[in-house]
Design a protein around this nucleic acid. Sequence first.
DNA 1: ACCTGAACACCGTTCAAGT
DNA 2: ACCTGAACACCGTTCAAGT
Lengths: 287, 287
Amino acid sequence: MAKAARTRISVWLENSGTAGTGTGSGTGAGSGTGTSTGAGAARATRTRRGEQPSGLDRDRITEATAKLLDAEGLAKFSMRRLAGELGVTAMSLYWYVDTKDDLLELALDRVFGEFPDRAAAGGPGPDVGPSWQTELRELAAEYRALLVRHPWVSPLLGNFLNVGPHALRFAAAVQRVMARTGLSPAAQRGAIPSVFQFVYGFGTVEGHFRQRCAEVGMEQDEYFRKAMAEFTMPPEMAETFQHTERVMEEMDSGETVEQIRDRDFRTALDLQIAGIEALVAREPDRG
Amino acid sequence: MAKAARTRISVWLENSGTAGTGTGSGTGAGSGTGTSTGAGAARATRTRRGEQPSGLDRDRITEATAKLLDAEGLAKFSMRRLAGELGVTAMSLYWYVDTKDDLLELALDRVFGEFPDRAAAGGPGPDVGPSWQTELRELAAEYRALLVRHPWVSPLLGNFLNVGPHALRFAAAVQRVMARTGLSPAAQRGAIPSVFQFVYGFGTVEGHFRQRCAEVGMEQDEYFRKAMAEFTMPPEMAETFQHTERVMEEMDSGETVEQIRDRDFRTALDLQIAGIEALVAREPDRG
DNA sequence: ACCTGAACACCGTTCAAGT
DNA sequence: ACCTGAACACCGTTCAAGT
């Protein structure tokens, strides 16, 4: 009852449910072709001759999507709006993409392609190059920067599986650093979310705050002060919130919101790295 | 240009922008009354006599909102749908609430009220009762449980400031444990997101996954296996993803997805606590 | 004081039709 | 093979009107 079961939750997974029969003309994009990074061009390249009238293809659409999301945010994004940007009707898009969600997933993976392409494992020996500590810091900083640069990424990460080729490349890089810490595989599996879910949350609120400031056209410090002023703290709690008070003091002594945030981020990474080191020391020796 | 500036981003902040003039009849809810936990009842109590025809009030609406969000998720929630549930037209709701977003914020804070009410600071001396370690674990576990119980909370937390009375009570509890660790105030400000943004991210993906399973009517293990089967790993990456492989192995040896997740969560908290302890040991003695 | 109906300006998506 | 127009079933919100 109620529409055929559809378990697929990602463009990157094989189509399932109603297997085989298919439901229409425009489906089946990228089944099995997705191993190379240029997966998005699948349908377009299949007909490489005679250029589409409007010059549309999956890649151009995905690119325009990311650009529009950067410019106006997730809330204002719509298929009609995007189509307008591309000089085409909304329905043309559905030739290249099954649903709006699929398109968002494509855009999501696209920006993960902005990560510098780290050397794969098995390159130089395990004891040359940067320590796992500094490489972990780098990865965290890059992830944070991505989330701040593209505030729309964060809500999408919450909704989709994110197993596109670029996201996988990043996940692999994460797993490789963790493997170098000396933690047991089981402990690595706890350490990964410990570090990168933290970064996710941190980058999310940071990006969101910056976006908000941009929308109202205020500086971050200005906006922070204003929000504090408007907010009437319940008096019985006032004493508990030492941190907020302290931030205000630090701002008064000339430090910016951004500087304070950077310092907090660094502290948190110090904490995480120290935590990993402690767990390693605690574990029975292994190889 | 383009609509009067409106900086307010939370029901809990004083109305601002267009200050004084106001734009209509039904605005101005809760200006300054919000210090007590029962702030939502403000308008209703003001007219305590003669019971509204439909029995509507802000509290009942907020309650119904949370219930509907639990039942059908954020995506399917709408003012019209909620109104239907309350046996009323959508527009009636706008008498009690300015916008849909305000209502969502009210519901958000409401579920933060589910946290057990922790004793305020200044109760028993600092060295009786549970250690900061076990209290931190408890807070983390409760937060995780909240996010899993109400998967719609997570996306809302990303969008709103969340400075309602109940959320503040929780934040205060967090600050109090951190104050007991021995960290400097500056380090505390890094440690808080380190721990609780991790929990946020962890609880988010867990809650989301469970919701997905419920929607398609599958067990978690079943769904996990299915997703893995549908996913064709890029061959050059297969060797990197040891963890995923290992999870599959552990599932084959009888462990459930849930058990593995619990173990990972515990490991991450071990890591975080060890990290805090290391930072404390590293800092110059204080107090 | 509280509630409604009609209307506005949007959505994502389907479907039959055009070229 | 690619694109469109019209239509369906929705949104949040406003506004004038009812009781």
